[in-house]
Amino acid sequence: MGGKPTRVTNSIRQLRFAAGEMTQAELADRVGVTRQTIIAIEQGRYSPTLEMAFQIARALTVPLDEAFHYPDDTESTG
């Protein structure tokens, strides 16, 4: 099995609440995806495309690497 789709993690849920209690449905509408896709991204079940990641960050009015995080290779060994 390939397992989990990505090593990218995100803070979308926290940022949503910080951005005036934005619901998953609202964020989904702004980005142009289904609500379930936003849920899947928040739960780490789906890796968004680069373009979608930018759109999500924009919708949350934060820079890309505040919404999405990629582990440093030195951190992830062991």
């Binding site: 995806v33 289904t34 896709t37 979608m52």
Partner: peptide
């Protein structure tokens, strides 16, 4: 009724 039923993930 959603604004979107099938997106790129689907």
């Amino acid at each position: 009724k959603e604004s979107r039923f099938r997106d790129e993930r689907d």
